[in-house]
Design a binder for these strands. Structure first.
Length: 818
RNA sequence: GCCGCAAUGGUGGAAUUGGUAGACACGCUGGUCUUAGGAACCAGUGCUUUACGGCGUGGGGGUUCGACCCCCUCUUGCGGCACCA
C-alpha cells in the first residue's frame, strides 16, 4: 500500500476540527432546507457504548451527512434520558446520590458518543434530570392538569414488588412462565424492566387522559410514514371495538346493570348476565342464601395470581348471585352470575352472555346448564343444536330481527336502545389512561400541593421547578408504603398556593416516559430559559426522520403522539403528529441471540475501533444487511470493509490530473453516483457500500485515475466514512474546507446509457444462451440472432416454434412444442 | 387461539419489483510475495455430472411464454395481542 492511514489519529484530528468550526449546528433561521434528524436518546448507564448504540447512531449519521451534502440544513441533536431506576438502585447499593452518578455517566457517555464522529449538535444538548429540563416537564404536567387531561383516581393498578412502584399498562408485559415459575407452560404479567410478576394494588394515582385521544391516535396512523408493523401494534393496543351499550334492569330492584357488546344483534340469545368478581354491584345483588358462596368466590379470585386467571384453557368457574336481570327485548329473566372470565378492566366489567354465539359463554353455559338459544346462523335456518356459531349471518329466533343480516339487526337494536333510553351504539377502546405516578425518587416531582381545604392545587408556574430534595436517605426498604420523597420533611411541607395554609406536596415522581414524551419539542429550544418552546423554533418540528428501537411501539411512540396532540389542542403547536417518518433499526445479535451481559455474549466495539477505526466499524455495521433488519455479528466480516477502504486509499493515491479515463470507466463512475445516491436516499446502506466496492474493484486495476473519478469516489464515500474522506479530500485536493461543505456529485444520464447490451435467450422459459445487441435493435434482427445461436437452434430443429416473445432490451423467449 | 413479518449457496446478504437467481462480502480451495503470516495481492467457488446436461430461492399445488416476486395451501422461525365481550 502506498500510504498508511492512522485511523485513530485522523479521527481525533477531524473530530476536533468539526468541533472548533461548530459545523454541526444548523442555521436555525433557514427553514426551507431544514432536516430534523433524530435518533432516540439513551440512558446514561455508565457502561461503555455497545454495538447497539453504534448501530443506531452510525447509519443515521451517514444518512444525515448524505442529506447535508444534498443541501439540507441538518439538525441532529443528542441528549440523555437520565431519570430512572438504575441510578437510584445504584445509590441504594453504593450510597452515591443519583445526581452525582448520573452526571458522571453522562460525561463519560458523551465523550464516547463523540468518538462515533457523528454530526451531533452538542450546543443543544438535553438532559432530562437537569432542573432546567424537568422544570418544563412539570410545566407540561400542569398544562395537562389545567386542561383536564391529568387527574387522580383510586384504581387497581399494577405494582412491581421488585421496582417498588406502580407501572402503566404499557409497561406490563405478558411473559411465558419458566419452569421454575408457578405455572409452567403458561404466561404471567410482569414488569417490563425486571420481569417480576406484577400484583394489583388499589392506590390513588395520577393519570393522563390518553383515552380522550384514542379515536384520533387510531385514525391518524393511516397517514404516517411509519413501519406498518408499528402502526399495527398501536392499532391493536388502542383496540377499538364498535358495538352497543345495553342497560338491564334487575328484577324486583331499582338497580341497573350496563354491559358492552359488539353483538347487539344477538340480544334475543342473551340468556344470562355475568359480572366480574370485582364489579361494584356484586355485593348489593347477592341474595342472602348465596352471599357466602359469593364471598368465597371473590376471595378466591382475588387470591388467584394473574397467572392462574390468565390461563386461557382453564375451566370456567363462577357462582350464581341469586338475582335476575330482565332482557329488555323479550322480558325474559336472565340469571346474574359472577365469573372471573369477565374482566373488570374492560367495558363495564359486565357482559350479556350469548352462549350460542360466543365460545366462552358457550363453555360456561354448558358447564352450568344455562339455556342456549341459536339466534344467528349462516343462512337464517336453525343449525344442529349443540354448536356455537360466532360469525355474522342471518338472524333467527329473534322476533322482528328474523331474516335480517347481523349488520342490519345491529343498527335496528342500537336505534331502539337509544329511543328507549337504555343504551345505544357505543365504541369501546382497549386503551387505558396513562398512569404516570411513580413511587420513586429519581424522577420529575409532580408539581401538585395537596391542601386539606383546597384539594389538589397546581404549583404556580413561577415556582417551577419543584426541585428534588437532596436530604433523602437511599434505602432498600423504601417504596413499600411510602414514596421516598415523603421521607423529606423539607420537600414535603409546603404552603397551599391557593390559601397559603400548610399543606403537603405530592410525594410521587413522574414516569420517565413523561420526560421523553416531549423532548423532541425541546431540542431546538434547548437554550431558551423563559418558556418551554419558542414559536419560531417550533417551525423545526415535526421531526423529519426519527429512528429508534421497535420496542417503543406502544409506549414512548404512543405517549409522544398523545402529548403532541394535547399540546396542539392547548394552542402551543400547529401540528398533531411529532414524527413524520419513523424507522426502527434492527438488532445486532451474537450467535443468533440478543446480546446481554447476563448471557455473556456482548461484543465490545472498543477492540474493533482500536484496530480498524470508527469509520471501518460503522461501515461494517451498515454493510451487514438491511438497516431495519439488523444481523448477526461476525468478527471476520469487518476485514472486507477494511480491505475496501484500503483500496480506496490506494486508488486515490494514483490520481493523475492529466489522465483521461476510458469511456467504460467514466460510465462506471456515473453509474456509481446514481445508484449510491439512490440507495442512500432509501437508507439502503448495505447496497450503497457494495456498489462502491464494485467501483473500487475495477479502479484498483488501473495505474492512473483521473481527477473526476477520485473526486467522485471520495465524495460518495464521505457519508459512510466521514473521517477518512475528510483526510483523503484534504490530502488530494488541498482544500481548507470540510468535504461536507461540498455538494454530492452529479451524474450525467447520457454517460450511463449503454449502447450495446447483453440479453438472455430462453427456450420454453429455460436459459439457453446470451446475445449482444445494440440498444433498441429491431425485433426481427434480435430474434434472428437468437435463433441462430447454436445452443438454441438445436431445440428449434427438434420441434415447432409456436411463439416468439421479445421484451425489448430484456429477453427473448422462444416457445417450442414437439 | 388471533394478527403481522419472514424463510435465497458453507455464512451475511443482492436481484432494476414478472424477464440471465446468487451482485457485494465473509469463509473455503489453489497460487504469488515473504524468515514468518491470523498481513497483502491474484484466481476459483450454488448443488450434481467425466462431459452434454440435469437440479436449484422452506414443502406442495396453481396462474403465466416466463415466478424468489402474483394466487391457494402447508411447515418452520420471529414479533405483537391474548377469556377485550
Amino acid at each position: 500500500m502506498d500510504q498508511d492511514i492512522n485511523y485513530i489519529e485522523i479521527e481525533k484530528k477531524w473530530q476536533s476540527k468539526w468541533a472548533e468550526s461548530h459545523s454541526h449546528s444548523p442555521n436555525f433561521t433557514n427553514l426551507e432546507d431544514k432536516f430534523y434528524c433524530l435518533t432516540m436518546f439513551s440512558y446514561p448507564s455508565g457502561d461503555k457504548l455497545h454495538v447497539g448504540h453504534w448501530y443506531n447512531y452510525g447509519p443515521v449519521d451517514t444518512y444525515a451527512r448524505y442529506k447535508k451534502m444534498n443541501g439540507a440544513n441538518v439538525f441532529q441533536p443528542q441528549g440523555f434520558d437520565s431519570f430512572g431506576l438504575p441510578a437510584e438502585n445504584y445509590a441504594i447499593k453504593h450510597g452515591i446520590p443519583p445526581a452525582k452518578s448520573t452526571n458522571l455517566n453522562i460525561s463519560k457517555m458523551k465523550s464516547q458518543l463523540q468518538q462515533i464522529g457523528a454530526m451531533f449538535d452538542w450546543s443543544n444538548e438535553l438532559n432530562t434530570s437537569d432542573p432546567k429540563y424537568y422544570r418544563w416537564t412539570q410545566w407540561l404536567f400542569l398544562q395537562l392538569y389545567k386542561n383536564g387531561l391529568a387527574y387522580q383516581k383510586t384504581a387497581p393498578v399494577n405494582w412491581c414488588p421488585s421496582c417498588k412502584t406502580v407501572l402503566a399498562n404499557e409497561q406490563v408485559k405478558n411473559y411465558p412462565s419458566k419452569k421454575d415459575k408457578p405455572a409452567p407452560g403458561l404466561s404471567y404479567n410482569g414488569c417490563d424492566r425486571c420481569k417480576t410478576e406484577v400484583v394489583k394494588r388499589d392506590l390513588k394515582q395520577w393519570f393522563f387522559r390518553i383515552t380522550d385521544y384514542a379515536e384520533e391516535l387510531l385514525a391518524n396512523l393511516d397517514d404516517l410514514n411509519w413501519p406498518t408493523k408499528t402502526k399495527h401494534m398501536q392499532k391493536n393496543w388502542i383496540g377499538k371495538s364498535v358495538g352497543a351499550e345495553i342497560e338491564f334492569s334487575v328484577k324486583d330492584t331499582d338497580s341497573k346493570i350496563s354491559v358492552f357488546t359488539t353483538r347487539p344483534d344477538t340480544i334475543y340469545g342473551a340468556t344470562y348476565i355475568v359480572l366480574a368478581p370485582e364489579h361494584l354491584s356484586v355485593k348489593e345483588l347477592a341474595t342472602s342464601q348465596n352471599s357466602a358462596n359469593i364471598d368465597a368466590y371473590i376471595l378466591e379470585a382475588r387470591n388467584k395470581s394473574e397467572i392462574e386467571r390468565l390461563a386461557a384453557d382453564k375451566e370456567k368457574t363462577g357462582v350464581f348471585t341469586g338475582a335476575y336481570a330482565i332482557n329488555p327485548f323479550n322480558d325474559e329473566e336472565m340469571p346474574i352470575w359472577i365469573s372471573d372470565y369477565v374482566l373488570i378492566s374492560y367495558g363495564s366489567g359486565a357482559i350479556m352472555a350469548v352462549p350460542a354465539g360466543d365460545e366462552r359463554d358457550f363453555e360456561f353455559a354448558k358447564k352450568f346448564k344455562l339455556p342456549i338459544i341459536t339466534v344467528v346462523s349462516e343462512d337464517g335456518q336453525p343449525n344442529e343444536s349443540g354448536i356455537c356459531y360466532s360469525d355474522h349471518g342471518i338472524c333467527l329466533n329473534s322476533e322482528n330481527l328474523n331474516g335480517l343480516t347481523s349488520e342490519d339487526a345491529k343498527v335496528l337494536i342500537c336505534d331502539e336502545l337509544k329511543s328507549r333510553d337504555i343504551g345505544g351504539a357505543k365504541t369501546q377502546f382497549r386503551l387505558h389512561d396513562w398512569l404516570i405516578s411513580r413511587q420513586r425518587y429519581w424522577g420529575a416531582p409532580i408539581p401538585i400541593i395537596h391542601c386539606d381545604d383546597c384539594g389538589a392545587v397546581a404549583v404556580h408556574d413561577g415556582d417551577l421547578p419543584v426541585q428534588l430534595p437532596t436530604d433523602i436517605e437511599f434505602s432498600s426498604t423504601y417504596g413499600e408504603d411510602i414514596s421516598p420523597l415523603a421521607t423529606s420533611e423539607s420537600f414535603l411541607n409546603a404552603d397551599c398556593p391557593n390559601c397559603n395554609k400548610p399543606a403537603k406536596r405530592d410525594p410521587d415522581t413522574m414516569d420517565t416516559f413523561v420526560c421523553s414524551s416531549w423532548y423532541y419539542l425541546r431540542y431546538p429550544n434547548a437554550n431558551i430559559d423563559t418558556e418551554a418552546f419558542d414559536g419560531s423554533r417550533l417551525n423545526w418540528l415535526p421531526v423529519d426522520l426519527y429512528v429508534g428501537g421497535a420496542e417503543h411501539a406502544t409506549m414512548h411512540l404512543l405517549y409522544a403522539r398523545f402529548i403532541t396532540k394535547a399540546l396542539r389542542d392547548f394552542g402551543f403547536l400547529d401540528f398533531g403528529e411529532p414524527f413524520k417518518r419513523l424507522i426502527h433499526q434492527g438488532t445486532i445479535t451474537k450467535d443468533g441471540a440478543k446480546m446481554s451481559k447476563s448471557k455473556g455474549n456482548t461484543v465490545s466495539p472498543d477492540k474493533f475501533i482500536e484496530r480498524y477505526g470508527s469509520d471501518t466499524f460503522r461501515a461494517y455495521l451498515m454493510f451487514m444487511g438491511p438497516f431495519d433488519e439488523g444481523g448477526d455479528w461476525n468478527d471476520k466480516g469487518i476485514t472486507g470493509i477494511s480491505r475496501f477502504l484500503g483500496k480506496v486509499v490506494n486508488i486515490c493515491s494514483r490520481i493523475d490530473r492529466k489522465y483521461t479515463s476510458d469511456v467504460s470507466t467514466i460510465k462506471l463512475v456515473h453509474k456509481a453516483i446514481k445508484y449510491v445516491g439512490q440507495d442512500l436516499d432509501q437508507l439502503k446502506f448495505n447496497t450503497a457500500i457494495s456498489k462502491l466496492m464494485e467501483l473500487s474493484n475495477v479502479l484498483i486495476k488501473h495505474d492512473s485515475i483521473d481527477e473526476f473519478t477520485v473526486k467522485s469516489l471520495i465524495l460518495l464515500l464521505a457519508p459512510i466514512a466521514p473521517h477518512l474522506s475528510e483526510e483523503l479530500w484534504s490530502l488530494h485536493f488541498n482544500s481548507d474546507n470540510s468535504i461536507f461543505t461540498e455538494s454530492w456529485p452529479i451524474y450525467n444520464e447520457s454517460k450511463i446509457v449503454d449502447d450495446e447490451i447483453q440479453i438472455a435467450v430462453q427456450v420454453n422459459g429455460k436459459h439457453r444462451g446470451n446475445i449482444r445487441i445494440e440498444i433498441n435493435q429491431n425485433k426481427e434482427s434480435v430474434l434472428g440472432m437468437a435463433k441462430s445461436l447454436e445452443t438454441v437452434a438445436k431445440y428449434l430443429s427438434s420441434g415447432n416454434l409456436v411463439k416468439e416473445i421479445y421484451v425489448p432490451n430484456k429477453i427473448v423467449n422462444l416457445v417450442v412444442k414437439p
